[in-house]
Nucleic acid binder design. Sequence first.
DNA 1: GTTAGAATGTTTATGTGATAAACAATTTAT
DNA 2: ATAAATTGTTTATCACATAAACATTCTAAC
Lengths: 152, 152
Amino acid sequence: MHSDDKNGIDYSMLQSRLGYKLRRAQLVYFDVFSEACAQEGITPGLFGILAIVYHNPGLTQTAVSNALDVDRSAMVAAIDKLEGMEVVERRKSKHDRRSYALYLTEKGKAFTERLDRQVNEGESAFDSFLSEEERRWLLDTLDRIIQARKGG
Amino acid sequence: MHSDDKNGIDYSMLQSRLGYKLRRAQLVYFDVFSEACAQEGITPGLFGILAIVYHNPGLTQTAVSNALDVDRSAMVAAIDKLEGMEVVERRKSKHDRRSYALYLTEKGKAFTERLDRQVNEGESAFDSFLSEEERRWLLDTLDRIIQARKGG
DNA sequence: GTTAGAATGTTTATGTGATAAACAATTTAT
DNA sequence: ATAAATTGTTTATCACATAAACATTCTAAC
């Protein structure tokens, strides 16, 4: 009954745990992302916002927070920062005076496109050991995990 | 060229990004883990420590932090808490008066075994849509991602 | 052996991010 | 017109990661 060893350490309870492996793998991608664009002051969370607003201009803060499954209170500081960087702007909605419609500035569009390329390069240079088929399978499986939760 | 839609929202820049999906999937598992044992005051990070010390009694704090790839400064508060719960104990090392050897108490062993079962149940009730083969493939792939970083 | 360098546990600080409660202003439903 | 829900916001807490610095102790070089 010899155990799962690495550097002489027994990882029995963690080795086959998806939650643990997902956490470790996510940390790796966080590092890769940071190397790709930490210099720009953009974190994965901020990039998510840019990506959503880029392709869906005019959404409210709450709509973006729903799209990314984060609390809407988290949007305030994030949008404040992106507005300070002059890549996103809040425009008052005519239909609903409570809410803002979010748009990328011209600078923000170019910025987002550049970040998208940089992150793609950084990630693909790193996960090129995955075939395109494996990559798709992995993405689909992760999606199934994410969706499985929605129903519960 | 109609785009990746969900609830009428275009996820183009995120849809095929492994980092994003890993983050979301990890969040899901964090929730499942929490439901399984948040009542015991145990977080995923603390469980990792218990799992390592359970199978590798006598390791120093630094050795455990290396095993889990966290900074050793993060161990202090964690071990403090586990010691306060009377599940882990620090014993002064005879060979090195700087360091402690970590051990589970009898209570800690039973506690860890129970948590292990609870988390296994919580996770498997949730990811049962994966075949055993798919699960192994997923674990292996995540391992490859984690290991790929070590070399770079 | 003494001395210089490295390692151990520790404290303190910063930052990211998730989560939750509460509030005023506004909109929607009754 | 009144009650209920929604929007952005503030504030708080917690998990977790990272980094610098420090005293004590050990290791290596001389």
